[in-house]
């Protein structure tokens, strides 16, 4: 009996020892679905190196903002920046973590990836439902030498609220006064035309199945599904295909230094080779956290992610932040958390 008690005590002691550090080394986050694949890969690699587990729930940007405000997670992730006033009100800090792009994709028989050109205004008119056919004169003028079919245009948009939608319509509102006046900007909007697919995969599936359709999805899904994309005219007037380079050029040409709390949406960036619908995922954390140890661990993780972690990110077609921006983020951390 005595031996049993000793054994039990030993087991209990071992269990407490084993449990205690695990609880301390759990960092929880929630939000954006766009960042989930890269966060999951980072978390896996990081926990192998350091033993710290990052537990991330991809519940959507709106949910991430709500959760960090309620202080139930260590960090939130959003595809849409919060204004400095709203951040201050909630006692939050904000910085970018990864960049990606939103890409218009098409289903046009006989037309390959990158073989159709669109301007921002034309893209807005298509999604407004005012340009209805692929052989519209405005489309033909932009695409001389391309045989555009006489197909009606079917618009495909997101049916769920999404940061992808936010970045897409933010761009449309910047280039089209009509869009700004009639529709506006938000994570979901009142679409004047088309059908809605749930998630990037839903939109990709609809576009692949509907002849004459056009939709918008995250760059990673374009690569995975090999859907033909359109090239877009940027603010400098050149036609740019989506690629890691053109996203990075957009991030480098955006003027981050003037944006307080990184409150900047990178769409329609001025750089000559900048991709016009480049999107950013922002991390939100409490300035004065309830559990400072976990916030510190989260910051260590993000520092690692922005440095060593970029190799993992590149494999998943996420684009590293330009070095100048990383330096600004480091300075921001110094200023925010002492």
């Amino acid at each position: 009996m005595k031996r049993f008690t000793t054994a039990l005590a030993a087991v209990l002691a071992a269990a407490t020892v084993a449990v205690a550090p695990v609880r301390a080394q759990q960092v929880t986050g929630a939000g954006s679905t766009f960042v989930y694949p890269v966060l999951a890969a980072w978390s896996d690699a990081y926990s192998k190196q350091t033993g710290v587990k990052i537990n991330y729930q991809s519940i959507g940007s709106g949910g991430g903002i709500a959760q960090i405000k309620a202080d139930t997670v260590t960090f939130g992730a959003s595809d849409m920046p919060l204004e400095p006033a709203r951040l201050a009100e909630a006692g939050l800090v904000q910085f970018p973590l990864v960049i990606g792009g939103v890409v218009p994709v098409v289903n046009l028989p006989g037309i390959e990836a990158g073989k159709i050109r669109l301007s921002g205004k034309l893209l807005a008119d298509i999604f407004l439902g005012t340009v209805k056919s692929w052989n519209d004169p405005a489309l033909a003028a932009l695409n001389p030498g391309t045989a555009l079919p006489a197909l009606p245009i079917s618009v495909v948009h997101r049916s769920d609220g999404s940061g992808t939608t936010f970045n897409f319509v933010d761009y449309l509102a910047k280039v089209s006064p009509d869009w700004r006046a009639k529709i506006g900007v938000g994570t979901s909007v009142s679409w004047p035309a088309g059908v809605g697919g749930k998630g990037n995969e839903g939109v990709a599936a609809y576009v692949q199945r509907l002849k004459g359709s056009i939709g918008y999805i995250e760059y990673a899904y374009v690569l995975q599904n090999k859907i033909p994309y359109a090239v877009l005219e940027n603010a400098a007037g050149s036609f740019v295909a989506p690629s890691a380079r053109s996203f990075q050029e957009a991030a480098a040409s955006a003027d981050w230094s003037k944006a307080q709390d990184f409150d900047l949406v990178m769409t329609n960036a001025p750089g000559a080779g900048a991709y016009p619908i480049t999107a950013t995922v922002f991390i939100l954390m409490h300035r004065q956290p309830k559990e400072p140890a976990q916030t510190k661990q989260a910051l260590d993780f993000f520092r690692w992610a922005l440095g060593q972690g970029q190799e993992v990110a590149a494999k998943l077609d996420y684009v590293p932040l330009p070095p100048t921006l990383v330096a600004q983020i480091e300075a921001y951390w110094q200023a925010s958390f002492h």
Binding site: G60, S61, G62, S159, D160, G161, S188, G196, G197
Partner: peptide
């Protein structure tokens, strides 16, 4: 999943349950 009123049975629409499932998180 389109919030447009349309008489045609061939047109896209949305349903109560689908709208909630699609839009609740955001």
């Amino acid at each position: 999943n389109a919030h447009d009123f349309n008489l045609s049975l061939l047109a896209p629409s949305t349903s109560i349950a689908a709208a909630i499932a699609n839009e609740f998180t955001e």
